[in-house]
Lab assay of single mutants.
Amino acid sequence: MSDQEAKPSTEDLGDKKEGEYIKLKVIGQDSSEIHFKVKMTTHLKKLKESYCQRQGVPMNSLRFLFEGQRIADNHTPKELGMEEEDVIEVYQEQTGGHSTV
């Protein structure tokens, strides 16, 4: 019986991991920090939209990076291997420009 009891508790931990929340720091170019608590399985588009709304800027005017890689709207913290207190960097999107060649 103890084996049966242990097995469901392991499964519960697996389920808990799926719905687990982590805190992420979003740091802007001006070094301002906003902290977000997100589920591991939530699409990061929600975090990006919330950040842009707080900053009063359109979402397409900023780019969000985690460990140097651009974050897509459909990425989740779990897919990117994010952990508690990880940092997302935000930069002004640069458009235009010309070749110097």
Results as ranks from 00 to 15, higher is better:
92 Q>P: 10
50 S>K: 05
6 A>N: 15
26 V>P: 15
96 G>D: 03
34 I>Y: 05
81 G>I: 04
12 D>I: 13
39 K>D: 02
58 P>S: 12
12 D>W: 00
65 L>N: 06
55 Q>D: 09
18 E>Y: 10
43 H>A: 13
83 E>F: 05
80 L>E: 02
3 D>P: 07
82 M>F: 02
58 P>V: 00
31 S>P: 08
75 H>R: 06
82 M>N: 03
52 C>I: 00
19 G>Y: 09
75 H>E: 11
77 P>Y: 01
92 Q>Y: 10
57 V>F: 06
21 Y>W: 11
38 V>E: 01
14 G>V: 13
54 R>G: 06
97 G>M: 00
23 K>L: 13
8 P>E: 00
21 Y>I: 09
23 K>W: 15
22 I>H: 05
34 I>T: 09
69 Q>P: 07
86 D>L: 01
69 Q>A: 14
57 V>R: 15
84 E>Y: 11
79 E>P: 00
61 S>T: 08
3 D>R: 09
45 K>C: 07
11 E>I: 03
96 G>C: 05
42 T>Q: 14
13 L>N: 10
71 I>T: 04
25 K>Q: 07
45 K>H: 10
22 I>N: 02
26 V>G: 05
32 S>N: 12
95 T>V: 15
86 D>F: 01
81 G>C: 13
2 S>Y: 12
37 K>H: 03
72 A>L: 14
11 E>V: 11
31 S>K: 02
34 I>K: 03
49 E>L: 07
46 K>W: 10
81 G>E: 13
60 N>Q: 06
46 K>V: 09
82 M>V: 02
26 V>L: 15
64 F>W: 05
45 K>R: 12
70 R>Y: 06
39 K>S: 09
74 N>G: 13
30 D>C: 00
14 G>F: 14
60 N>I: 03
81 G>L: 12
49 E>W: 00
90 V>D: 03
10 T>G: 07
25 K>F: 04
16 K>G: 11
17 K>M: 09
47 L>K: 02
89 E>G: 12
38 V>Q: 02
30 D>V: 03
72 A>N: 15
70 R>K: 08
63 R>Q: 05
53 Q>L: 11
55 Q>C: 13
11 E>N: 05
63 R>M: 07
41 T>D: 00
19 G>P: 09
77 P>K: 05
4 Q>A: 11
76 T>L: 01
53 Q>C: 01
54 R>M: 06
97 G>V: 04
87 V>T: 14
31 S>W: 15
43 H>L: 12
12 D>Q: 08
16 K>Y: 09
31 S>Y: 15
40 M>T: 13
34 I>H: 05
11 E>L: 14
46 K>L: 09
43 H>Q: 11
14 G>Q: 13
14 G>L: 14
12 D>G: 13
16 K>E: 11
12 D>Y: 10
85 E>F: 15
88 I>H: 04
26 V>I: 08
43 H>G: 10
76 T>I: 01
28 G>H: 04
92 Q>H: 09
7 K>L: 08
71 I>L: 02
36 F>S: 03
93 E>F: 15
66 F>A: 05
60 N>H: 10
10 T>S: 11
62 L>V: 15
91 Y>A: 07
55 Q>R: 15
84 E>C: 15
61 S>F: 08
34 I>A: 04
15 D>F: 10
3 D>N: 09
21 Y>F: 14
76 T>C: 08
56 G>V: 05
39 K>W: 09
4 Q>G: 11
40 M>N: 11
29 Q>N: 15
17 K>Y: 10
40 M>W: 00
70 R>I: 11
93 E>D: 09
43 H>F: 08
15 D>H: 14
33 E>Q: 08
77 P>M: 01
47 L>E: 03
11 E>A: 11
92 Q>E: 08
9 S>F: 08
67 E>I: 01
27 I>G: 03
52 C>P: 03
77 P>D: 03
87 V>M: 14
43 H>V: 12
38 V>P: 01
53 Q>F: 15
9 S>A: 13
89 E>N: 10
49 E>M: 09
